[in-house]
Design a protein around this nucleic acid. Structure first.
Length: 416
DNA sequence: TCTGGGGTCCTAGGACCC
DNA sequence: TCTGGGGTCCTAGGACCC
């Protein structure tokens, strides 16, 4: 049978590892854009009972936060990835799960060679205890005949306390289980499909599973059919897991809107630098670079502009300097005067393995230049890994004037 | 004042080939 | 009544996920 593991309130659980005194009090994790302008990314159950929800902008719920003395913690994404990695390693070492894969930062799938639901439940209990013991993170587990049913099991584990965090759905109870799940709570059925399904008078996962395949195919395509098959007990979804990413994006919403091209250039080159470093970390090269700009969609009183442009490179690269040049070119193409920009980002795509990159036959000197740049990038990565992420940077990135990043005031950036 | 930041896969249609 | 029959590659955009 297939199993699914989902970490409870993951970001909050990670933060509480180093702040155990906050256990039992309401805690939320929010991103921070430097202006108290973030939204709630994760919250524990104490924060849920006072009425907070994932996605709430902080400024809209500041009264609730003050009234109930909710602790707001800024997100530390590096920490979450490390903890996630520890969970994966702990489960791997236990050798209890086959084909164990990471699906997202806080979710895992796998298989267990066990058909008896009670036995499987016992194994999941062991797994849950192992993860708690080795990492301190509480998890919920589900089991079933397919990935989708296993994930449905986790849904029950989370919504009904009597399951104590573990729910296996055996074939014999599949229909009963699906009749208790609303169509909107099915993994794979999204916002756009729900009105179409409900208009047919279908309300539950079982209603959907009982429709003819042809109807599902016509309305929801092959992805809809896959979910339909999985609900009916036939595996149809594969989880890639543990592969290199196929695209890398870095984008930010600004604390203050800007109409300045030079500000955008500075920010975008910083994003390009970070994205390029991640590209090298996973030993990939990119063949395409995209930039997007967006105005504040919440400000209906201002003119809106939203655009993306992509540049394909002749030769795939992981060189920050080349990627910055592409970003500079794309910004020149995209930029329009007279708009207040609120968000911008860089996307690296068409990634390929760094070991098999095609060079340019007609530009042999390019190879020498590439080799020099490669050594420069390696040196910069080494220095920045050791002394802090932007110690050595390109002049176009600007100087870091944010005192929060340098509280002691001794980290003067060195500019190339 | 203040409204994340990432990802994957699929489809439709156009341009081009024989 | 009848208007070939296949292909490939590319791109933009949609839908879904966390």
């Amino acid at each position: 049978m297939y199993i699914h593991i989902d970490c409870n309130n993951f970001f909050v659980s990670c933060e509480l590892l180093s702040r155990p005194q906050l256990l039992g009090t309401p805690v939320v994790v929010a991103n921070d854009n430097g202006n108290n302008g973030g939204i709630i990314l994760a919250l524990n159950k104490e924060a849920k009972v006072v009425g907070l929800k994932r996605g709430n902008p902080l400024f809209q719920v500041s009264n609730v936060i003050a009234e109930h003395q909710v602790t707001v913690i800024e997100a530390h994404h590096r920490l979450y990835h490390e903890v996630s990695h520890r969970i994966m390693e702990a489960v791997r070492r236990s050798e209890m799960v086959l084909g164990f894969v990471q699906y997202s930062v806080d979710e895992f799938f796998g298989e267990m060679p066990e058909n008896d639901p009670e036995q499987l439940r016992g194994y999941l209990q062991q797994l849950k205890e192992l993860i708690a013991r080795e990492t301190g993170i509480p998890v919920s587990c589900g089991g079933g005949e397919t990935y989708t049913l296993a994930k449905t099991g986790t849904w029950f584990a989370k919504h009904y306390p009597r399951y104590d965090g573990i729910c296996v759905i055996p074939a014999a109870k599949r229909d009963k289980a699906l009749s208790l799940v609303a169509v909107k709570d099915v993994w794979g059925i999204g916002r756009r499909s729900i009105p179409v399904i409900e208009q047919k008078g279908l309300r539950t996962a079982l209603d959907y599973a009982r429709q003819p395949e042809a109807w599902v195919h016509r309305l929801f395509g092959v992805t809809g059919v896959r979910t339909w098959k999985e609900l009916n007990g036939t595996p149809a979804i594969t989880i890639a897991g543990n592969k290199r990413q196929q695209s890398i994006m870095y984008s930010r919403t600004f604390a203050q809107m800007t109409d300045s091209k030079s500000v955008l250039l500075r920010d975008l080159t910083n994003y390009a630098t970070t994205a390029s470093r991640r590209l090298r970390e996973q030993r990939s090269h990119c063949q395409a670079v995209s930039v997007f700009l967006a105005t504040n969609r919440h400000r209906t009183d201002l003119p809106q502009y939203n655009n993306t442009q992509t540049l394909r490179l002749r030769i795939a690269t992981d060189d920050t300097m080349q990627i910055i040049e592409a970003v500079r070119y794309l910004l020149n193409q995209l930029f329009r005067d007279g708009y207040q920009y609120k968000q911008a980002g860089v996307i690296l795509s068409e990634l390929q393995n760094a070991d098999g990159v095609q060079l340019d036959l007609f530009a042999p000197d390019q190879a020498q230049k590439a080799a020099r740049h490669k050594r420069l990038m390696q040196a910069m990565d080494t220095i920045n890994n050791r002394f802090g992420s932007n110690q050595l940077h390109f002049a176009v990135q600007g100087t870091n004037e944010n005192p929060a990043d340098d509280p002691a005031g001794f980290m003067r950036p060195h500019t190339i």
